[in-house]
Design a protein around this nucleic acid. Structure first.
Lengths: 136, 136
DNA sequence: AGTCATTTGGTACTTTAGTATGAGCCTTTT
DNA sequence: AAAAGGCTCATACTAAAGTACCAAATGACT
């Protein structure tokens, strides 16, 4: 929180300096008007982008990107990951088996392994943990 | 997609017009340099904010806000909603019962009613649907 | 050729989950 | 007071989910 205030304070200061500099350049004739306005426009455009980005909660920007490396760290195999995604879609073991053209037994095996690897007691908990880890 | 291109096209056009106008104002002496630069800075700042906002996927901005009205539309009661949240946390009926100081039977009743109201076959599907509806 | 990880699938069993039904107790509304 | 909705709980059941083991086929790597 203190950090945010500091950053914004410095930013405003920088903008004021920039603004004064741009005026000075024009008045002193070091630069023509078109260039100055263009530069100011470009800079303030990016400032607008930056401010808006910073104004958003961090999760909304970080989230939605699946962390592939974490999947490997947990030793989750391709097949297991497929099953995990179907679980998060709310499908039963039987339905997942039909989607992947394998038996329900196979899905049960995958699910059991997933629960161990994700340190979950139930499939619902597995979904929660997987989302926290940004795996799905 | 066509709409996006159209909007951005018009936006660029408007900016060019604005840019030319600002130059013209200064050259013709209708406005002083300071004011012109300030106006351009402010406008392009907000353009930056706008562009950045538009560049984000809609879900990232809409999401994270729970839709209270939709909960009522579905006739989900307070208690049922509490249970729903615990389900999404990956708890079992027994664990939820302990958290809410009621029996597992009671939780089963609530879950059954939730599944009907959310039109889900399983608790995992209920979680998925509830998230789609931005209820949790 | 042999090892290893992955995927598959089976049996047998225990544990949760979910359904159906009925009932008692409150509180709010009519 | 009666009706209605919400919360509670129990019984009895069926259906999924999950565990524990075992075993076989496959492909990659050494």
């Amino acid at each position: 929180m203190k950090k945010t205030i500091l950053v914004f304070g410095l930013l405003i200061l920088a903008l004021l300096v920039l603004f004064q500099l741009s005026k000075f350049s024009v008045v002193s004739g070091d630069m023509n008007i078109e260039s100055t306005i263009a530069i100011v426009a470009v800079i303030f455009f990016f400032v607008g982008v930056y401010i808006h980005k910073k104004s958003l909660p961090k999760e909304q920007l970080e989230s939605n990107e699946i962390d592939t490396s974490k999947i490997q760290q947990l030793d989750i195999t391709n097949r297991e990951y497929e099953v995990l995604k179907f679980i998060s879609e709310g499908l039963s073991n039987k339905e997942i088996g039909e989607k992947l053209f394998v038996s329900e037994s196979t899905i049960k095996t995958h699910v059991s392994n997933l629960l161990v690897k994700l340190n979950a007691k139930r499939r619902t908990e597995a979904v929660k943990i997987a989302k926290q880890l940004q795996i799905i």
